[in-house]
Nucleic acid binder design. Sequence first.
DNA 1: CTTCAACTTGACGGTTGCGTCAACTTTTAG
DNA 2: CTAAAAGTTGACGCAACCGTCAAGTTGAAG
Lengths: 207, 207
Amino acid sequence: MTGRQDPSSASNGRREATKERNRELILSAGRDVFATVGYGAATVRDLIRASGLATGTFYNYFPDKESVFMALVESSATELRAKLAASRADATSPETFVSDGFLVFFTYLANDPTFLGLLGRNAGDVRALLEEPALGGAVEELDRDLRDAVARGDIPKLDADLMAAAMSGAALELGLRMLERDDCTPEQAARFATDLFLGGIERLGSS
Amino acid sequence: MTGRQDPSSASNGRREATKERNRELILSAGRDVFATVGYGAATVRDLIRASGLATGTFYNYFPDKESVFMALVESSATELRAKLAASRADATSPETFVSDGFLVFFTYLANDPTFLGLLGRNAGDVRALLEEPALGGAVEELDRDLRDAVARGDIPKLDADLMAAAMSGAALELGLRMLERDDCTPEQAARFATDLFLGGIERLGSS
DNA sequence: CTTCAACTTGACGGTTGCGTCAACTTTTAG
DNA sequence: CTAAAAGTTGACGCAACCGTCAAGTTGAAG
């Protein structure tokens, strides 16, 4: 015995390794396909072809294209939501609440551009599938936090629902523009959005 | 001769009448189908079924689903663009430039809610198909007008590209929210958006 | 090395979509 | 009324997708 080729590394599970690899192959294929063809027009066969696996193998991992799409959106979305929630919890003032939120958002997008591509290309399908606005629960959390801020008197009275809609819509579109331009850093985008909305909030308060 | 059943009314063209009717049947089917299933997932068969016509008839009017989609988007989009352009031409101040623009936009959407449904559901496909932002050339015209306004000194110096993105993104999302709520008139939505962006522009100028 | 469970593979039958076209119906014109 | 043109119809052949499953391959354990 001892003929083990690799006794050191805890290679307990060559099986598990392939499983992980295949799942990743499919998810990666999904990113490509959904971003280019769009979710609606994409077929399971497209995913299979792009992954390089066999038909049957695909179905060992996911039952349909929706599951792949959900896995992609949700993993990125929950990560993003966590970061946003953390940044808001740390906010010491209305200003930092807004500015840190945007900075986190745009930085995240810059680091995970595929996610924004997915989102921008398939916002309508995300909405239809999740029955929630484009960014998943993130918008609802924003809405809640805005209401709280108004209740605490941190920001003037305003329609939190509309404000959350405006912020998310603008943020998505600004993110897409940022990625299209090579001269726009997350910091710049965040600064722009922050000034825009802080100024807007101020004016909405005195109307 | 003179055996004509209806000599008075210029019924010159029973043919033309059906042509018009069929075309409208298909376009109407397109509005329904694209808004519910989404452009990508919609098939020509879906359009045919929803129109009530026969397969061959469809192809007498449109070569594929893309043509139907384009006809729908473009007709509404050009109408909207015309109204926006008119409102801007009449603007007497930066304030009315912004406020009238939004009012025209939201009023239009309230009168043609299907268009917004189409747009919201298929923004990604519109973008991919037109190779332009969600609202077609409207965003580019907005960008141009913003640059002009900055050049004239009507509004402070700002990144017109980002501002156009933010305005269009917010406007789309606000429009969708407005339609979902029964307590939000175009006037209210326009007032909100106006205050938001005028305040934002002001603050962006003094940064 | 052998054995077995776990996993992969792609061919297969069934379904749906595509665009066409020969046969039929409706409108117009004489 | 008749003839011809214009338009409609749906069945047809072809192509793609779907999810399954029997046969084959690979990894783990003894």
